[in-house]
Simulated scan of single mutants.
Amino acid sequence: MRKTVSLLIILGLIAASCGSKKKAAQKKHSKKGRTAHVTPKPVKTPDKEHERTAEFKPVMVNSTEEYIRYFAPIAQDEMREFGIPASITLAQGILESGSGRGELTLKTNNHFGIKCHTGWEGGMEYHDDDEKGECFRKYNDPYTSYRDHSLFLTSRSRYAPLFDLRTDDYKGWAKGLRKAGYATDPRYPQKLIGLIERYELYRYDDQVLRSPEGRKQLKNTGKQIHVVRRGDTLYSISRRYNTTVDALKRANRLRSDNIAVGQELKIR
């Protein structure tokens, strides 16, 4: 009898010990399970890739009409500022960029096919054009391309005769661009004129010319006088009108390089 009781006690102790181990194992397993469901930290985007995406901002359009609607106001602003017909700027943009959908434009935001040229310190992209692997300017956004187009035409003496034409003479401007060497295609003027007349781009010139403010601004883009605006310097003005700082100072009897907003400067 005593042997039987002792055996039962031993079996009871063994069962209790196994149960305790089982509970401990279950508790440990449960703890691991909770840890496995913790949400992982997101993977950080590499800095260089983030910067590239943040800086380069092309504008995607689906048709020539959409291109015109988007860029016409910008071309008109450039016309008021520099005296280049909006119709010419838009026609060149359409032709040179394939209405914003050309391979080069999508890679560079270059809407006017402007090559690097000596002294260019901005972005660059190599692309096959008249010759293999030519260097083209690259911009962060299309607006910079439009402004650089205006500066390109106003800062080079070979384009100076264009600014003696009437601002609404888009045919004269188209022929003058080809004559000055903007493009090698002998049919370049006809292509620009065809685009202007097909899409009635001349109406954007008319809108600027009919506006009293636009007429006043255009008057000041001539070669005779310039009204100083915020951000202007004698150097930037001299580049715009293809002259020198010393010539501006002599023409306006300036003793220093200081100029004020609203001041009228004689160019010639």
Rank of each mutant, 00 (worst) to 15 (best):
A86R: 03
Y182N: 06
L95Q: 08
I88M: 08
G123V: 10
T167M: 04
K28Q: 15
C18V: 14
R137H: 03
S155E: 07
W120N: 07
R2H: 06
K219A: 15
F112T: 03
D168N: 09
K31D: 13
K31C: 07
Y126G: 05
Y143G: 10
M79Q: 14
H29A: 15
H37W: 08
P42E: 00
K3Y: 09
T53N: 11
Q207I: 11
D168K: 02
Y202Q: 10
T39D: 04
K28R: 12
I68P: 12
R198H: 10
Q263R: 02
G123K: 12
K138I: 06
D148P: 00
N62L: 09
S63C: 10
C116Q: 11
R187Q: 12
S63L: 10
N220D: 15
R215M: 15
S211M: 08
G119V: 00
K191P: 12
N220C: 10
I10D: 01
T184H: 07
K179L: 12
K219D: 15
T64F: 03
S30Q: 14
G222I: 04
L7A: 14
K32E: 13
L254M: 14
E131M: 08
G98A: 15
Q26E: 15
C18T: 13
A160T: 05
K216M: 12
H226Q: 10
F152N: 06
S236E: 12
